[in-house]
Amino acid sequence: MTQGDLIRKDILPFLPARIKNLFLNLDDNHYGGLEEIRLRQGKPLCLRIGEQDFTFDVRGRLVLNLANGFTVSSEDIQRTVASISENSLYAFEDDIGRGFITIPGGHRVGLAGQAVLSSNQIRTMKHFSGVSFRIAREVPGCAEGIVGFIGARGWPPGNTLLISPPRCGKTTILRDLARILSNGTHLHRGCNVVIVDERSELAGTYQGHAQMDVGLRTDVLDGCPKAAGMIMAIRSLGPQVIVTDEIGRREDVDAISDCVNAGVSVVTSIHGRDVDEVRKRPLIRELLDSNAFVNGIVLSRRKGPGTIDNMIRWDS
């Protein structure tokens, strides 16, 4: 199935008819690079394709000039929100409180609007003003090079940290790493993997089912806070490897230390351009100084998403 078919099947049914019709003119080349579809009330419809933002002009042609683009109405937003929530906002209250809803196919739909607070926590949202479809993609095999590197010194591989700025493909690579570690390679047997998926991005879980291929020996703790999920996994699921996304808080660091002490490998990611930038954060510096991680992978968009800039061994 091409990326175009995937988007036609998974995303377009959720868009209002007048916007859906505009997408019918797109060819597979455009669909191939499409990363985001943004609807902002009273603003032009915005399509992120590669490094550029496109919109549709009055004739329905894809153009770069956003100023003259197709304007999204309040009704478009309301219809889209109704559609992605199955006309049932109450059923997605927890998701909306976290700012997004995951739709079938594992695609994440971010929401903008007025937050409704309860005891200083965001309970839900109302008066929606923006919707952003972030298209999840699987690139099977994209992490094979990394597995070769991190698995060279033993199996399951040691603790691994992916360092990457946003939109450089770290979630896609983490997902593929989980799949390969879980299924095994021609050299190594598969491991028990637990994905702690706090934001439902890694496995793209929809109504309890992982929408992405995350491997045969993988359990998913969906919507679970990272630190609590890692401890829970050690206690109850007997993982050999725990995969989680975007660490950064004190409790994440403590949980990783617990995993190291329990002999469980952690494969995780952090936002940053390089090791030096990441080391400026006291918590992460503390973690790196304690030799918690043995492998570091630095990603960028230099040659497109998922470009491996550097692979580091901290144990040598």
């Binding site: 109704a82 929530s85 006309n87 906002l89 109450y90 209250e93 309970r123």
Partner: peptide
């Protein structure tokens, strides 16, 4: 209003 608010409001 049906469906388009939180559980308590529904």
């Amino acid at each position: 209003q049906l469906g388009m608010s939180g559980g308590e409001e529904q």
